[in-house]
Design a protein around this nucleic acid. Structure first.
Lengths: 208, 208, 208, 208
DNA sequence: AATGAATGAGCCTTCATTCAT
DNA sequence: TATGAATGAAGGCTCATTCAT
């Protein structure tokens, strides 16, 4: 795993840096969601963060750093959400079902943010993009592990070679709830969507 | 279906308009793919198109029009590719298999372009975006129809209410070959990917 | 001799480029003389040139280009002035006397500009600085040649190895009329200064 | 002579003020030499001085004060160097020769610093500039006095009205070793340069 | 129809200076 | 005395768009 790229700051106090960056992230997420990264100005970010443009630049080195901060925070949120739904001491199949539902719920709650990553990731500098993609891969391997576990305990029928692909499919099926929402939300409620996708996937992985 | 949004031009001759716009599209696609929409300047577009900035603006009204033109052309390409793989006089199941493979092949051939749509669509003005999304929906319904046909001729086992969702899934599973290529292309060749995804989908739709 | 560094322009018509750059130079010289390079803004330059900031940047690539343009034009002026005082068909000694007087007159007429070069040359990018220094060297060798000629026709007594140094001395004695003017102009008129320096130098080079 | 402009400080203890300002000067000289006054930031100065930006401003009132401090210190160094070479109880001619050589040696040792004064002096506020120029004049009059002494003891042949000018010439011939080094250092070693310039000047002032 | 010079609003970023602690 | 976070005016530069030729 790539280690988190750390952004230099002119300010020394780490506590303060974290506090200020949280303000920046909170402000920037909203702005990026509603206007997009390119159409958001640094001044808007600083204003929405509650301080001056000069202060903003005490905590970042460039506008792109803000995007990175935002993407990172979003992924953190997703991972946190995922970890929370993890139940232990159950079969892989049960665990998978819970994980998919949990993942979809997170996708729904964070749809604007997830969408944001999808749309602006390409504006990140090379290095930062790599790191963000690594995070995405981590989420995928989260599902890989569950699948593998189900395979081992016999609760899921899946060939080893399909595990990675299936993990990708699950993640994408979850993320599409955000990036195809212009159609899906017209036809399904979240509950329906969860129900249907979960059953599609599990039927495939559990039939005799 | 939304009808194609027509972009006003200062020029009268429709033949010329089409010719010039083709030049614009060809130039802009390359530029947008390699630098992104926002980092491409209108001057670059006109230069790459082979004429002056003034002339460019004889055929479009704003930079966003170019993006729209480009997205539209790409979708056209995808649809054309899809139509070509359509075989008639066969069962829905056979047709679906061919369609998925064909679709994946098109996705692979046009990966940069498809990715472009994914990444820049949000920069389109409201109206244009709607139209582009409608195109996307059209592609989805292309698969819906095949599924429905297979259901009717008994070659596919699928509940009516799952048809739309499954169509979406198929489309997304195809498109993810482009937007998750940073991972998928490391693990699978196109052939493998086609083989695996097709078999996953068809297994699901055909087992008794 | 380094060849003149040519500055790229967005504009095609060379006549227009020259005309606009002349406007830029004229405006910038005044501003640089009165406020210095660093304290002059590009907006001031464009305004004083008679066009917008956008237009300014059609003819240069950076603010430093303006400084280069200005330094180059000034040197051109000095060289032109020098060439004009050159009389032919006379002994080296006579020629030298005329050249020194002419040079001093030019220094006096262009004192602000010469001073400008002295003070801002270090703000030029490496390449441009080299070129400007080469110009300065050219002026020195102008005197070298006259000295050598006088040595050959017997009208000047000077050892070959002193020729280059003496040329430097002459140039510096001329230029100091500008950069030490805070003292010299209080004590001498130009005429006095010319008379005294010329006689000092020539006495040295002509006594038996 | 102008009296040394004194810079106000928030701090009371004069010993401390001197100590801190010495730190500032030492740090700033290096920075100004390598990056120039304008491209050096106050933050860099404070960091290189070994204390915070806040502390820096306890000892100066503006960035220009630092430049003044630096220029003043450099002149001090030059004067100190000059005083050291002064031999007494000898003829003016002998003294002059020693002084020129000593001056050239100082110019060589302090070339970066002398150059710095030449290039940045114009960035000083009016008042400070006047004071610095007065220092320069002092150095000139140092040579004036030697010349006058030589005239009086008969060891130098020079008309009274030429004394000031000759003093200027000597100073400039020394300083040009720094500001024309891009050419002179290519052609002469310091020893050669000293030898040649000294002999040129003394020949002029001593021949029968 | 085609050209391309001109425009200027607006963007990102820097940095000297202040002041509460 | 020393610190360093905060400020915001100001600067260099870009680029979509227009319009006279």
């Amino acid at each position: 795993m790539e280690h988190r790229k750390s952004i230099p700051s002119m300010v020394k106090d780490p506590k303060l840096i974290e506090k200020r960056r949280d303000q920046i992230i909170e402000a920037a997420v909203e702005l990026f969601i509603s206007k997009g990264f390119h159409k958001t100005t640094t001044r808007e970010i600083s204003r929405a963060s509650g301080f001056s443009i000069g202060t903003l630049y005490e905590y970042i080195e460039s506008k792109e750093d803000v995007l990175y901060l935002v993407c990172d925070a979003i992924h953190e949120g997703v991972e946190k959400g995922l970890k929370e739904v993890l139940v232990n001491g159950v079969s892989g199949a049960v665990m998978l079902k819970a994980a998919i539902k949990g993942f979809l719920r997170v996708m729904d709650e964070m749809q604007d943010r997830v969408l944001l990553i999808y749309q602006e990731i390409k504006s990140l500098p090379k290095e930062a993009m790599k790191y963000v993609l690594a995070k995405e891969e981590e989420i995928t391997s989260f599902f890989e592990e569950i699948l593998r576990r189900g395979r081992e305990d016999g609760s899921l029928k899946i060939d080893e070679k399909y595990i990675k692909l299936m993990a990708h499919n699950i993640v994408v099926l979850g993320e599409m709830w955000t990036f195809r929402r212009w159609s899906l939300h017209k036809h399904y409620t979240l509950e329906e969507y969860m129900e249907m996708q979960t059953s599609l996937i599990l039927r495939e992985l559990t039939e005799e």
